[in-house]
C-alpha cells in the first residue's frame, strides 16, 4: 500500500517540474540568448582590439583596461561626470519626490490634477523631452532665459557652459522622472497606518516631529529601494544626454553610457568600448551590493 501510494505522488511532482520548466522556458531561453550570452561575450570582446570598419580582431589581453584606467585621461573625466551626475540627480530627485508625495498623499481638491501633472513627463518619450528642453534652454533667445529676464535674472548660456550644462541636464532629467518616485513614495505613505500618526499627534508632536520620528523611519525600506532604482537609472542615462548636449560642451556632460556608445558606434572601437561596458557593469554591481548591505544593516 505504502509503495503503491508513493509512486504516483513522485510522478506528479516530476510532472509539475517539467510543466514548470516548459512554462518558464521561452523566457529563459530568450534570456540566455539575448542577455546572458551577450553579457559573457562582452568579457571576451573586452580583451581584444577590434575595429568595426575593417573587421580586424586581435587579442590584446588587458590592454583596453590598462588604456582606460591608466592611459586615457578621458576615462576618469567621464567617471567624474557620471558621479557628479548621480550625486546631483539622486538626492534632488528623491527630495523633490518625497516633498511632492507628502503634499499629495492625502485627498484634497485638486490632488488628482497635481498628481497627473507631475507624472505626465514620465510617460513622455525622453527624445521629445530632450528636444523641447534643448530649445527652451538656448542662450539669449531661449524661453527659459526670457522668463528669467522678466524677474530680473540674467540667465547663463545653459547648454554652452560645462557646469551649467551639467546642471541643466540633471534638472531636466529630474523633472522628467521625479513623478515615478513620487508615486512610489505616495504608495509607501499610504501603507503607513494612520494610527501611528494620530498617536504621535495626541502626544503633542508637531508636524515636523511626526515626520522625523514616525513617517521617515517607516519610509526607510521604500527610500532604499527608490535610491537603488534611481542610482542605477542615473548611470544608464543615454538618450537624454545624446540629444541635449551630445556630451559637450568641453566634454562636460560626457557620461559613461554615452562614452561607451561613442567609442563603439561612432569610433567603432569595439574592444575598448566592451572594456568600458565591463567597467560599467562592475560599478553598477558594486553600487547595488553596497546598497543591499546598507539595507541589511538597517533591517537588523
Amino acid at each position: 500500500m505504502a509503495r503503491a501510494g508513493r509512486a504516483p505522488w513522485l510522478t506528479l511532482q516530476r510532472r509539475e517540474a517539467i510543466e514548470a520548466w516548459l512554462f518558464v522556458s521561452p523566457t529563459l531561453i530568450g534570456f540566455l540568448i539575448f542577455f546572458l550570452g551577450p553579457l559573457i561575450a562582452v568579457v571576451f570582446y573586452s580583451v581584444s582590439e577590434w575595429n568595426l570598419l575593417s573587421g580586424e580582431q586581435v587579442f590584446v589581453g588587458m590592454a583596453n583596461y590598462h588604456d582606460a584606467l591608466r592611459e586615457n585621461p578621458d576615462f576618469w573625466h567621464v567617471i567624474r561626470n557620471s558621479v557628479i551626475f548621480a550625486i546631483g540627480l539622486v538626492p534632488l530627485n528623491m527630495a523633490l519626490a518625497l516633498t511632492l508625495a507628502l503634499a499629495l498623499s492625502r485627498p484634497f481638491r485638486g490632488v488628482v490634477f497635481f498628481r497627473t501633472v507631475f507624472f505626465a513627463p514620465v510617460v513622455t518619450s525622453a527624445v521629445a523631452w530632450a528636444i523641447v528642453w534643448k530649445f527652451l534652454l538656448q542662450g539669449e533667445g531661449g524661453t527659459v532665459n526670457a522668463l528669467l529676464g522678466y524677474v530680473g535674472i540674467d540667465g547663463p548660456n545653459w547648454l554652452r557652459e560645462p557646469d551649467w550644462a551639467m546642471a541643466a541636464v540633471i534638472v531636466t532629467r529630474v523633472i522628467k522622472m521625479v513623478g515615478l518616485n513620487m508615486i512610489l513614495y505616495i504608495a509607501a505613505l499610504q501603507a503607513i497606518p494612520r494610527d501611528y500618526e494620530e498617536a504621535a499627534r495626541l502626544e503633542g508632536a508637531s508636524g515636523w516631529q511626526i515626520f522625523r520620528m514616525v513617517t521617515w523611519p517607516l519610509l526607510a525600506p521604500a527610500t532604499l529601494i527608490i535610491m537603488v532604482i534611481t542610482t542605477i537609472g542615473s548611470f544608464k542615462v543615454f538618450d537624454h544626454i545624446y540629444l541635449m548636449t551630445g556630451g559637450g560642451p568641453e566634454n562636460g556632460t560626457l557620461v559613461l553610457a554615452y562614452y561607451i556608445y561613442e567609442q563603439a558606434f561612432e569610433f567603432f572601437n569595439v574592444g575598448y568600448a566592451s572594456a568600458l561596458a565591463m567597467i560599467m557593469f562592475v560599478i553598477v554591481l558594486a553600487l547595488t551590493i553596497v546598497q543591499l548591505i546598507l539595507r541589511q544593516k538597517g533591517a537588523a
Binding site: G37, P38, L39, A41, A257, F281
Partner: peptide, 16 residues
C-alpha cells in the same frame, strides 16, 4: 538582470 544597463550588452547584441 535588472541591474545590468542595456549599454553593457548592446555591443554583443549587435553582432548577434
Amino acid at each position: 538582470a535588472l541591474m545590468v544597463p542595456e549599454e553593457v550588452t548592446i555591443i554583443p547584441n549587435f553582432f548577434l
